[in-house]
Nucleic acid binder design. Structure first.
Lengths: 371, 371
DNA sequence: CGGGATCTTGTTACCGGTCACATTCGACGC
DNA sequence: GCGTCGAATGTGACCGGTAACAAGATCCCG
């Protein structure tokens, strides 16, 4: 016998002229809040029910979109909902349903351009779907981190998990983890991945290599990313494939770690006589480092050496010289990752989407080779 | 009369040799799960209580660190906790307490270096404190966005809100919003802010201007950020103050929008005869754009013109030439913002922390002036 | 106009912690 | 050996939604 938690007095007070909704506490009658201010706290479904003089279940049904509510009743509910500015408490909802409107994003490279753009796109897509993105930042290197993240996930009743890390380490940890909820591993790069082989010969790297071939370059050096990153491997593979397809020659593949510093180091360490006329870097930062290293070796870009990047970071257009590169749509990748995850959460098959194609942006860092 | 939800049979089964904990369902006796696997779902506090043959409240007390539990009892609880791999359900906890272990981060410039680094630091600090950072990405320009964010906050029972936006627009919207929970507005930049006036004359900009003065520069141009950003205004003010303190001359302040593109535009648009010998940009990107514009005007850096930035983005060391800049510790700023917020959540006064000082990094973009 | 089918609405319990209060236990004093 | 008091532990309700089921209202038809 709960003491009148939800008083259902069918008093006349409500039917009286709206002008005088003064809280006249009739004896034995619980006063019913008629406005959000009067309540002083977020309205609950029962507050609304009391004001509408229905059961909380009727309010609930209305909120679920149930049709079989008498118009008169429905109207009272609608009014009460508005008067109390009702917003469902998502925590309470999560408790019963066991699921929340939250997506966990596992990540650890928030400071890099690609990943942070992906997060941006993912956050947008999540928001558009009414979800919130929880950042689960990982300290890589500590193997327990994945476990900790996993615990966080289960403790927070997340609706799903998006793994935005792109290293093998992460992919592996992710693969063995059991999140108990839908999960989706988003590589930084889909386009060059092996399950889109058709893309390899249509746009992106082929267009880039094509561009260099047209300028007369025959021997190309690839400045690749760290091989533990799938994106780095994919790009290296795409490079090799495109070079072969054009009958050009790969002068080798050297590895950096995505940073300008590594690009600078690697290029500085090359032997003094270079048997290639263009450097194809796997990202713009490394290209930047290479640019400086070439300058320090008294090689002019593009007269003596052409150089290209991938990503098209905003700064790339203002390097000296401006960088020819492949523009990658990271925001779209992030959006898409979330959409895939949401599909999985809903039990749907993700819709087959068009391949994200990167676009060649020609700037001054490439030109006809003198050699 | 709840039907034995938490069976408290003091059966002997538990005291029997550990070797045989087979689930022998005695008639009229609910079986008690003795391991996480057997349960097949996350263990609740009542599962633990049943296994430990205590009330759920005793388990609760243990978890709260209550001391007055008899050793024998305590031991059973500890064992049950471990056997069932109990993890509190944070959603349920939030429901009763009305607070969660989540911090909302309002942001809209996730792709910029500073903000994304700040988020990184904030996410770390949040994680270290057992919190999770929820990204509430805003579409600026739409004034309803703040309202939407506010609703999100209340619906999700967030413990606090961190506003990481740095524009006046955001600050103002934030100031008028009532989040019902602790909130903290973190500017991108503390160091140059007016409430740390002492810093203005000790490190950071003064060191930078000092450096230029020593190289013989007398007239300096400031390439500022958009004036709607407090960080831009702070930096401009710090510039003016430092110039005055050194008896140098400000050749004016021109405004960009933080991008390399804007730096390039602004410097390209300057009259043909320049009456200054150094450009002090408010961030590295604009300095990059300026660098290219100067090169296009056939001005050599640093021989004809020195140039400096602020932030020390990783790429700055590999610009052509490498950029003299002020290193700003954004990660620390993010951490600190979260710590402040957590203090406010806990009702504590935030501890007075040392000013975050930016550090002068001298590279090749500055040199003695020929003029 | 009664009885069942249907439509509409209400009642009660539950999710898993937390809190307020009640009860039992054990030690001690007389 | 019994009463007392504090320590140890248990009971039941509650947070705000959701779900299963029950019951009242309405309607239709013979």
């Amino acid at each position: 016998m709960p003491p009148g938690t939800a008083p259902l007095e069918t008093g006349e007070a409500q039917d009286a002229p709206r002008e005088d909704p003064a809280p006249e506490a009739a004896p034995g009658t619980e006063t019913v809040a008629t406005s959000a201010e009067e309540l002083g706290r977020p309205a609950t479904i029962r507050d609304v029910a009391a004001l509408a003089r229905v059961s909380h279940q009727t309010v609930h049904r209305f909120l679920q979109g149930y049709e079989g509510i008498r118009p008169a009743t429905r109207e009272r509910v609608v009014e009460a909902l508005a008067a109390l500015e009702y917003r469902p408490n998502l925590t309470a909802r999560s408790l019963t349903t066991g699921r929340s409107m939250r997506i966990g994003a596992l990540t650890h490279e928030l400071d890099q351009f690609g990943p942070s753009k992906i997060i941006q796109g993912a956050a947008q897509a999540a928001r558009d779907a009414g979800y919130v993105l929880d950042i689960l930042s990982l300290d890589m290197g500590d193997p327990d981190e994945i476990d900790r993240a996993l615990q966080t996930v289960t403790q927070h009743d997340l609706a799903g998990v998006l793994a935005l890390a792109s290293t093998d380490h992460m992919a592996q940890a992710f693969g063995t983890a059991n999140f108990r909820v839908p999960a989706f591993l988003a590589g930084e790069e889909d386009e060059f991945a092996s399950d889109h082989p058709s893309q390899l010969t249509s746009v992106g790297f082929p267009a880039l290599i094509d561009h260099l071939a047209e300028l007369g370059h025959r021997r190309l050096l690839h400045l690749a990313g760290p091989s533990a990153w799938s994106a780095a491997r994919n790009r290296a593979r795409a490079f090799e494939a495109a070079v072969a397809a054009h009958g050009l020659v790969s002068a080798g593949v050297v590895h950096g770690d995505w940073t300008a510093r590594s690009g600078h180091e690697v290029v500085s360490a090359l032997p003094s006589s270079l048997d290639f006329t263009a450097v194809v870097a796997a990202n713009d930062q490394m290209a930047l480092g290479a640019l400086l290293a070439l300058r320090e070796r008294d090689l002019r870009v593009p007269e003596d050496m052409s150089i290209t990047g991938v990503d098209d970071i905003p700064d790339a257009a203002y390097f000296s010289p401006p960088l020819t590169t492949l523009r990658v749509d990271f925001v779209a990748q992030g959006r898409r990752a979330v959409e895939h995850l949401l599909a999985r959460i809903a039990g749907r098959e993700p819709e087959d989407d068009d391949a994200l194609i990167s676009q060649l942006v020609v700037r001054r860092s490439t030109d006809a080779t003198a050699r």
